[in-house]
Design a protein around this nucleic acid. Structure first.
Length: 431
RNA sequence: GGGCUCGUAGUGUAGCUUGGUUUAACACGUCGCCCUGUCACGGCGAAGAUCACCAGUUCAAAUCUGGCCGAGCCCGCCA
């Protein structure tokens, strides 16, 4: 007998069907019992009227097969329920459960650490599992948009000989007789592949940051959405590409994840255009409007980012805001200078958090080598990267989006680790 | 690397300031009984905690002190 999924039960009213899944909830009411069954498509209410049917050995979260007849019933959630004919216990769940996984999150009331300690179990909670359905859709839409726009998807090595931004923040690994490092970014490879002639490439891959911090917005391994494009006029081409990309991602989310967004109480704002502020302007806004003085002219601090987003929301009705024209001293060596000490680098802030960094890159070999030296790097260590620049590198630029951060901000999650299936943070290596 | 905070039944919290009527309380969950329309079901009852760990102060420590382990958040830095 073919298995019917929870979401399809309504199409089988009057038939005898087989359901399989986990017992989400059992509610005995006198002589009858309601058993809520969950499978990958959602939950369905079943009702046990026949008192011959014994489910006393069935625990919540046990795996069961239920034979029954769907019927229309206006008192049932969704207007349909399944009258149970037979229950087969396939695998019994131990008791007590680690926590009450069937609650809505405001009632679940659980610390992030407990949730992560029992990660596969916690994912049985519909609200928690929906985070990763949303994330999957973000990544899918990202790839689809770029593919349709002439970008080639590539996969580059995460084992590298040297960092893109100097030696700090890298995890060393033993690679036979050499020391290698986990890649903190696919930056060099992206650029090399633009120069290789693909012109437009994107990559979806984990990157690694050995940063010794413990905050709600940092993890040490995150999924980076990178793209790089050749033959641009300026960083504005990269920004425009991202705006169109984000519009597409949001459209897809609304179309394909409406249930998931509703579960999180999220109403996605339509993206029209995204305002831009030069870093200098942003710092001035902080001073004039919020009486906040930045200690450095290089970047905004987290409070500054939150305030600028507040400002952007008030002034431009946008959850997003680009910060542009960062000083060269605060950006990586490959960032294109604008000739006045500033660069063609930018960040994208979303609801108070940095989710993207990008720039136009330096495409002239001599300029790049020169800049490398200025940053205290030895060009001879980067021959593998620099070679293609000798043989004709077009003007190009690109960016990287932090997938977990974007997911976190879209769903207004408190901690970025909620948006990672198996997060690696300062202390956590398991599960 | 710097700073702040927290470890109490399976889960989430109260109690700690001012040590002693606390037999460590409450909610959810678990177990038992009752209930034919629940949907955070309801009612009655029960079990479940060497108060993270180690040492000290004291007649007496969940409570005070020191150490140790673990965790959360903020800053620097970053997506």
């Amino acid at each position: 007998m073919e298995r019917i999924l929870a979401k399809d039960v309504k199409n089988h009213v009057g038939e005898e069907i087989k359901l399989q899944g986990w017992v989400f909830q059992i509610r005995p009411v006198g002589k009858i019992k309601f058993l809520i069954l969950r499978d990958r498509t959602g939950v369905v209410q079943t009702i046990i009227l026949n008192k011959e049917i014994d489910i006393s050995n069935v625990e919540r979260e046990s795996v069961v097969t239920i034979y029954g007849k769907p019927k229309l019933e206006k008192q049932a959630p969704g207007g349909v329920e399944v009258e149970v004919l037979k229950v087969e216990l396939m695998e019994k769940a131990a008791t007590p459960l680690p926590f009450e996984v069937n609650r809505a999150s405001d009632l679940l009331n659980i610390k992030i650490d407990t949730l992560l300690d029992h990660r596969p179990f916690s994912l049985r909670n519909p609200e928690i599992s929906s985070i990763f359905r949303v994330q999957a859709e973000i990544v899918r839409a990202y790839a689809e948009f770029l593919r349709n726009d002439g970008f080639l998807q590539v996969h580059t090595s995460k084992i590298i000989s040297a960092g893109t931004e100097g030696g700090t923040n890298l995890f060393p690994i033993q690679y036979f007789e050499q020391t290698a490092y986990l890649a903190q970014s696919p930056q060099f490879y992206k650029q090399m592949l633009v120069g290789a002639g693909y012109e437009r490439i994107f990559e979806i891959g984990f990157v690694y940051r050995a940063e010794d911090h413990a905050t709600s917005r940092h993890i040490n391994e995150y999924l980076s959405l990178d793209f790089e494009m050749g033959f641009i006029e300026s960083e504005q081409d990269v920004i425009n590409e991202e705006i169109r990309l984000l519009k597409y991602v949001f459209t897809c989310l609304k179309e394909n994840c409406s249930e998931e967004l509703k579960l999180h109480g999220v109403e996605l704002q339509d993206i029209d255009t995204i305002p831009q502020l030069k870093l200098g302007e942003a710092i001035k806004v902080l001073k004039d409007k919020y009486n906040k003085t930045m200690e450095t002219e290089n970047d905004l601090d987290p409070e500054g980012e939150r305030l600028i987003c507040e400002y952007s929301k008030k002034e431009f009705n946008s959850d997003f805001v680009y910060i542009t024209y960062y000083p060269a001293s605060g950006r990586p060596f490959y960032t294109m200078p604008d000739g006045t000490g500033l660069t063609r680098g930018f960040d994208l802030l979303y609801k108070g958090l940095e989710v993207t960094t990008g720039s136009q890159r330096i495409n002239n070999y001599d300029m790049l080598v020169d800049n490398m030296r200025k940053f205290g790097l030895k060009p001879e260590n980067f021959e593998f990267y620099l070679e293609i620049f000798k043989y004709g590198m077009p003007p190009h630029g690109g960016l990287a989006i932090g997938t977990e951060r974007l997911t976190q901000q879209i769903l207004s999650l408190k901690n970025v680790r909620e948006a990672s299936l198996f997060p690696r943070d300062r202390f956590r290596l398991t599960p």
